[in-house]
Design a protein around this nucleic acid. Structure first.
Lengths: 215, 215, 215, 215
DNA sequence: CATGAATGAGCATTCATTCAT
DNA sequence: CATGAATGAATGCTCATTCAT
């Protein structure tokens, strides 16, 4: 396992065109998009820099005008997903007049919808974390811990308000809810008979019930 | 294209010492064990045959006395896990006097316990399926579909008996239950404060509630 | 079986600088030339890709910029020889006012001269045919059959015109003539006392006499 | 190309059961026979010791009870062929009342018949000479030079007696005659329509005519 | 920006050979 | 004699990365 002393090509953090904001699509964006397509197909380890270059219609050597290492591509994908996922958490936090369970349901729905709409990114995000090395890996783990805490707090809140069964440990339950959200990337097939909304609803209901108080 | 024209190493299928049966540990078993250790650490793609050989304390070339391809190691791991997992399903099926939800709870508990006890194998089993090629891949996918069907049938049964909420599609719910079971391999850390039994109980309760009829 | 799924290096067939046409020598040509030198020394099977790279003064890995497989080198050599040999046949066919035996003599002379001038290529061409696999092998065999037929027809023609002994089967005699032509690569040593022209003359006379009507 | 300092396993030269002499078939003979079968199929370089062991129905390691190196197998094959070929020359020399051309014809016939009857050995003998290393290689080359001289002398004799065209150099003509004899191993297919005798006759006639005086 | 030749380290796999049992 | 596990060197091939043009 190589060690990599993250000395980014650009001191300033890259700002990717994310989500819906329409901007003139930069070449950097296309590069990440190509990497997403390729890595989601074969996995980061099995994918080659050549594959990404092919997807872009340029030569392997030319790709190195945009990246310094193959891992850069992975890092940028993670950054992009993180930006999107953070935004979801912000939106859920900003919504007013919700009790904890309603907030959890909203979170699950939104996150599942995002996952189903960005299956490729999310596959990489959850499948290839361990391909990140050194500092990069630590950073992502730290961020995920934050997400975990966000959900754990909501669950604890729900429990204390009697809206959720208090016999389960909030950490364990949070993991179960995350399982419900995340695992979708492994089984959902677009155009396979289930609409995204239906899946999001079912997952939200399942998770909600899962932690529900069984009065 | 000449590759792989018979002269197989052993026509008869290998029988691995699986589960609890204590037998004189064969070298083949040690090989698989080493592969499990190595692959679970770095992933199949990133792991090298050299790594496995090192783990065994032999040379890379010597390992080829036991295998024909690196993929063989993966296949054998899958076979072993499959044997174990099939057995769980058999046991759950053979248990008498259970209503569908009780049976689901038993299945979740048993399977989660197995996963937590064999985190390494299970990581590989769920992480590196796509590294299998051709016929092997198809076979595993087919077997998993059987497992999916086993659970789907139980859920449908529970719904028709009023033991589960009928508003969710059994297929989607089965995926959610599997998520709960499987995802444990990604977050559970042995010795991290939660006992296996506690986790199994929580997961089973979560899954049960998840599909339960709530009123 | 995944091997070789397209993404070929170059869809268009390579055109090698063959025979006398003097052109700016392309790197591809140098690669083939190096392969010829190496393979003719030790035989295709015993030669290593490393050897060819050494001959070129580059690293083994660099050679793979030009080839996809070691076999490619062999194929290109065969293509080159075939182009040359076909041309000889064309020239012999195009020559006017020759009776069959004169045409045979011309063919033997030309072909022997070519062989002696390109001993290295021809050694490979006749020694390592069986190293070609699959379709490639079939193609070469088919082409050789054409050459065989060309000569057989000439012999038959000569026999029917009373210019050759009719008691010998044309196929067998063609093989004997080919033996005379081809085997030169095994015994001729440049600078060994015999000039190419002298050898060509002797071979032509030997072959001609060999099939000639003796009375 | 490795260098091998021939320290034979047995100081005394091995005596193989050759030709028709019926003796209790020793295990050594079987080993050589197996090697002949295998090497003639795939060539010495491409054949593996394992292949030979398989052919014998024993394990690779066991084969090393009979040989010291893979090359031993090749050497023994060469020894066997040489014994046979020498015998042919002895017989031709011993035949009385023959003029030089008759003697040449007899030699060609006998040798071609031998080749066609032992295609496998002969293929190896003529194809894999260069796989022999060091002293062994030199010895074989020396022996072949003797054979060449035997034929050259006959041709010179015939020329001086006016039985052959004197315009061709005896050395070159000898090579042409050898070509006719040897090349059969490359084109003759048993059961392919031509009987061995017919081929031998044609070759002898071709060679005879080839050197004949064209008065 | 892009090209494409070159690097060099690494990888899966093969195989002749050895040797304790 | 035979086995089969082990060796160790080599081989074909891949690929991330560099760089002169």
């Amino acid at each position: 396992v190589p060690t990599r002393t993250g000395r980014g090509k650009d001191a300033t953090a890259r700002k990717f065109t994310t989500g819906d904001r329409r901007q003139p699509r930069s070449r950097d964006d296309e590069v990440v998009e190509a990497a997403i397509k390729v890595f989601s197909r074969s996995g980061y380890a099995a994918a080659t820099v050549q594959d990404v270059a092919n997807e872009l219609g340029i030569l392997k050597g030319s790709l190195y005008h945009y990246i310094e290492t193959k891992e850069d591509l992975l890092v940028w994908i993670f950054e992009q997903v993180h930006a999107d996922v953070d935004e979801i958490i912000q939106e859920v936090s900003a919504t007013e007049d919700l009790d904890p369970t309603e907030r959890i349901a909203l979170y699950v729905r939104k996150q599942v919808l995002y996952n189903l709409t960005h299956l490729d990114r999310i596959s990489i995000y959850h499948h290839d974390l361990d391909a990140l090395t050194g500092e990069r890996h630590k950073q992502v783990v730290a961020l995920r811990r934050q997400h975990h805490r966000f959900l754990t707090d909501l669950i604890r809140d729900a429990q204390s308000k009697g809206l959720a069964d208090s016999s389960g440990d909030p950490h364990l339950l949070a993991n179960c809810v995350f399982a419900t959200i995340i695992w979708t990337y492994r089984w959902y097939r677009p155009g396979g008979g289930f609409g995204r909304e239906a899946v999001a609803d079912t997952c939200a209901a399942f998770a909600l019930n899962g932690i529900a108080s069984t009065r």
